[in-house]
Design a protein around this nucleic acid. Sequence first.
DNA 1: CGCAGAATTGATACATCTCAAGCTGGGTGG
DNA 2: CCACCCAGCTTGAGATGTATCAATTCTGCG
Lengths: 248, 248
Amino acid sequence: MLQEDFSFVSHDCGDCPIRHRAVCARCETDELERLEEIKYYRSFEAGQTVVWSGDRMDFVGSVVSGIATLTQTMEDGRTQMVGLLLPSDFVGRPGREGAAYDVVATSDLVMCCFRKKPFEQMMETTPHIAQRLLQMTLDELDAAREWMLVLGRKTAREKIASLLAIIGRRDASIKSLSMQERIVFDLPLTREAMADYLGLTLETVSRQISALKREGLIELQGKRRVTVPDFSRLLEEAGDDSDGGLLV
Amino acid sequence: MLQEDFSFVSHDCGDCPIRHRAVCARCETDELERLEEIKYYRSFEAGQTVVWSGDRMDFVGSVVSGIATLTQTMEDGRTQMVGLLLPSDFVGRPGREGAAYDVVATSDLVMCCFRKKPFEQMMETTPHIAQRLLQMTLDELDAAREWMLVLGRKTAREKIASLLAIIGRRDASIKSLSMQERIVFDLPLTREAMADYLGLTLETVSRQISALKREGLIELQGKRRVTVPDFSRLLEEAGDDSDGGLLV
DNA sequence: CGCAGAATTGATACATCTCAAGCTGGGTGG
DNA sequence: CCACCCAGCTTGAGATGTATCAATTCTGCG
C-alpha cells in the first residue's frame, strides 16, 4: 500500500521539489527549520478523497507531487470542479474550521501538511509565509475569475480549447519549451473530470475533442496524449485575445 | 458635476462607514494615521468606468459607498461579470502593474484610494493590513468558487434564484433582519447586468423573473424592488442545500 | 407630451443535454 | 496465451433549455 510510503519524498525542506514555489517559498533557513517541526507528509492513491466538504479540517498543506481536484457537489449530484491542484498549490484555509470543498486525488498524490493551529501561529510571527500566501491566493482568485468567463460565456468548443491551452501552456512552461513548437502533453483528467471542470457533459466533451481532432487542431495518441501542432490556432479557438502568453 | 464633490465623505478614518470591514479594519490608530497620509477620495457617477482592463493602475482602494462591477470582455463583445463590489470591498492588486478587469460604477460611487507604491510599502511594515487583505482575498476566492458552481451547473431559474438570494441575504444582514420575515430589497443591477453576472441573456433573465413572480416566489414593486415572502422557498429554487444561512 | 432606455413577451433556431448503443484497450483469471 | 471483462470513451438520435431576432410595453424625465 502506498499510503505510508513516502521514501521518495525528501524530508529536508532544503531540497524539496516545490521549495521555491510553495507557501514556504520566501522563508529563510531558520524559518524553514521551524516549519519542519510542524510538518508531516501524507500520501494518497489515485481516486482517494483527501478531504470531504464540510468535514473538520485540522491541517493545511501543499501538493508536493501529483494532481488533486477541488469540487463542489449539489444534492442531486451535479458537480462542478472549482480548482485543479498542482504541485506547490496550497490546500486549506487558515482561520476556518471546516473544508468548503471536496479534495480528491486524481493521480497518486503526496502532500506536505502542517497542523493548522501551529501554522496559524507561525503566520502571525512569520510575515514571509503570510506574504507568500497572499500572493498565491491573489493568483488563484485571478484564475477563478478567468474560469468564470469560460463557464459563463464560452461555447463548448471554446471551453475545450481553453482547457487544452491551459494544460498545454503549463506543461510547456515546466519543460521550458517555447510556444512556437509542437506541444505534447498528457491530459491529467478523465473526460468526466474535464466535463465537471467545464460545466459540460462528458458526451459533449468527447464530441468536441473529436471535432478538434478531425479538424487537425489537435492530434491524439491514445485517449490521453495530446499533440498541439499550432498553439496559436488553438488559442484562437479558445476565444482568447491574441496569444495571451503571459497573462496566466 | 459630482466628480469632485465628496463633502459627504468623512476624511477622518475614525468615523469612516467602512472602518471596521475594509482593508484597514485591523489597523490601530497610529497605523490609520499613516494611511491617512497616502489616501485620497475619488467619486464616480453611475455608469462611469473606474478602470479599464489592461490599463496601468497606480492605485488600490476600497469602495466607500455605492456599487461597482468587475467585468471581463471578449473581443466579440461577450462579457462576464466576475465580481460585484460593495462598500468595503477592495479594488486592485498589490504587486501588479495593470488592471486585469474593467471596473465600472453601477451607482454613484465613492472610493478611498491609496497610491500603490506607498501602500505596498505599508503592507510590508504593517502586518495588520496584509492580514486583513489575505482574509478578504480568501473570502473573495470562496465567493468566486461558489459562483463557478452557479455558472457551470445551475439552470437559468436556479441562477436567478441564487442571485436574488445572495442580494437579499446581504441586504437582510446589513439591516440585521432574520431570514424568517419578509425580505424587501432593491436590485442594484439592470437586467442586462444580471445577465452578465449569470452568464445568460437579458431576455432569459426577464423571463425567469416573470416566472418566479407568476409563481409567487417573489413580488415586484416596479422593476427594481423585490419582496421575498418566503426566503427558504427561494433557497430551494436556487438549489442550495438546506437554508445555508451562514456559509456566505 | 413624447422620447429613450429598460424591460417584457413572442416565435423560432440552435447548442447542448439526455438516453442509448457500441467501441477500445488494458488487466485478469482460467 | 487467450477470452473475457469493464471502465473509459465514442457516436447517434431525439428532447429540451436557452439564445436569437423582433415587436411591444413600460417608466422616468426633459
